[in-house]
Amino acid sequence: MRHVFSYRDKHYIYDTGSGALHACDEATARILRGEPADLPDAEREAVEADIEALRRAGLLDAPETDARPVKSHELKALCLHISHDCNLRCRYCFADEGAYHSVREVMSLETAKAAVDFLMRESGSRKVLEIDFFGGEPLMNFDVLKETVAYGKQEAAKRGKKILFTTTTNGLLLDDDAIAFLNEEMENVVLSLDGRKEVHDAVRKTVNGKGSFDAVIAHIKKFVRARGDKHYYVRGTFTAKNLDFAKDVLFLADSGFDSISLEPVVTDLADLAIREEHLPRIEAEYEALADEYIRREAEGKGFLFFHFSIDLEGGPCLQKRVSACGAGNEYLSVVPNGDLYPCHQFANDAPFRMGSVFEGTIDPVLREKFATSCLFTRKGCEDCFAKFLCSGGCSANNYHFMGDIDTPYPISCAMMKKRVECAMHVLAERKSREK
């Protein structure tokens, strides 16, 4: 499948079968779209010769794979809900402000160790494993977090395995001890900050109803200064209240953060939710952000915006592209009492309980449902140019908005497609400068 799109005065062709990206002039774009193009015969013949040459090289209209993912039942990653409590009360929190629609509690060391043992046992021949500390606010259970890391490293080493640890934190408890520990032990750290003070404080409030911006940004700046060249993301959320979110991304960049992610909110709160009528504004905002992103990069003042980062040359294998995140099969969430769920967004959703780290088994029916769900079972993805870059959307979002893990949520799709086009344009501009 070929996707011909324009960005300002630039024209591109993305070939889904081969994964190749090409630039072309307007007349060629019109011909490729099957639209009338007023061209002299000689020029038209030259364009058609170019198209035929790309076809022969396998870079246009290339056949697409229909290879189903190999169903590995070896566990790869656990999300440890080490705290179902939080010191913030963010209005849009999918996790019910940390409590996950249940009691506020933290995970015991016994449960955390049982989860590590479960991962060791269920990971089979895998050598590279992952544990993500999540909440709620994980640093509210910092002692257990630290002891779990030590135990995980010890148990993995015994088996010739390695665990990559990640923590997602709101930054409120990032003191010197936490900064030193996370910088030493975490492969990646995700730090929640929504951008401008007024935007952040409008939704991310403390238990006492006060804005958290001033405390959080000071802690996160201190953390990032100590982080060196290790991975981190300052990760924010935008809502219907700040559709001018490019200003928030640029605010974060101007605050000294060079690895940034800003995600559309997932909520059913009427005043915050992203709706279809917001899409034109959001798409224009992504373009405005891309323009500034390119300008800063050209001046040597660039930063990494997650959604404008794309690897078309050394990206993941097809197996990965069609099997996506692995939730419910290769990746599971563990809540404080040890129960298992397909992922953090299904936590404490009773019909999706898949067992317990203490039972030592995974519900075979639910696991099969998630293991067989892939790009080729997603409804509507077959005609989408972004399918091998997206893998069919988030199962949890699909389920919560559409009632089915295999039915993508159209608003998420629209934003994904726009971001992919922006990322391709950013890549093309970078390549152009390098030449």
Binding site: Y12, L312, P316
Partner: peptide, 20 residues
């Protein structure tokens, strides 16, 4: 005129990459 911007080095394989 068409100019190729990027093409994959090679496109079904190992599980070493990150898991959202």
């Amino acid at each position: 005129m068409i100019k190729t911007i990027a093409k994959p080095t090679e496109r079904v394989t190992c599980g070493e990459c990150r898991s959202c």
